[in-house]
Design a protein around this nucleic acid. Sequence first.
DNA 1: CCGCATCCAGTGCGATACTG
DNA 2: CAGTATCGCACTGGATGCGG
Lengths: 127, 127
Amino acid sequence: MTLTKMLPRLPIERTLGIISGRWKAVIIHVLLEGPKRTCEIETQITGISQKVLIQQLKALEQHGIVWRKTSLEEPQRVDYSLTPLGLSLEPLISSLQDWGQQHAQEQGDAHRLISCDAVVRSLDGQR
Amino acid sequence: MTLTKMLPRLPIERTLGIISGRWKAVIIHVLLEGPKRTCEIETQITGISQKVLIQQLKALEQHGIVWRKTSLEEPQRVDYSLTPLGLSLEPLISSLQDWGQQHAQEQGDAHRLISCDAVVRSLDGQR
DNA sequence: CCGCATCCAGTGCGATACTG
DNA sequence: CAGTATCGCACTGGATGCGG
């Protein structure tokens, strides 16, 4: 069940171990808007499957990032929200967002290996 | 050759796609100290193998984060340094570092599911 | 010293179908 | 609606050995 995978020792890796994963950062980003139901998150993130969503949420829950509240009402209802610890990731998520945006506009959407390589070539005449 | 894997569209994912990977963030962190030779990086990061190091460096190079400079001296010598783009990641890496440290000391090193669950239980009496 | 090729195990995650 | 079970594939990254 893979359950509770060990977190790495180094702080950097530790953080990455928590927020990296196909959808985790996006989920946190969405939850920063406020608590959401499972299905709300699902429809808000295009391309994620229910199974994977729940899977990632569970991992986040285990790391103390999100909080899961079940209501035993009629149609089963579950709300997810960020814990204080999760909220403390806000600046980090923003940074990711900002840097990514900047990065995207610096180079077109295509891979800018070309331009970079060109610089290298002109600078040191090899490769 | 997997070469130049597509970066995701969303900014957040884009950033993560670049810095996540078993050692990438750590490598960037190390290179923030200044340019290093391959073997220097290798000895400075415990647990990484040469192959993987080079592999990750190559990925970073392709994303325009590091710059690879070869000197055709005698014993072959290669230096890696951060590009301006790579340097611009500095605040981000710091954030990762800081958050991880904070997180590590809040909870012991063991998994703190327990304490978190306890809170949950006391707060809403279910689960 | 630096890098590449090959081989291989673990696993992240997607698709699908089923329970309550 | 929420979650679980099963299956399968593709990819990451570790070990090792070769070549420049």
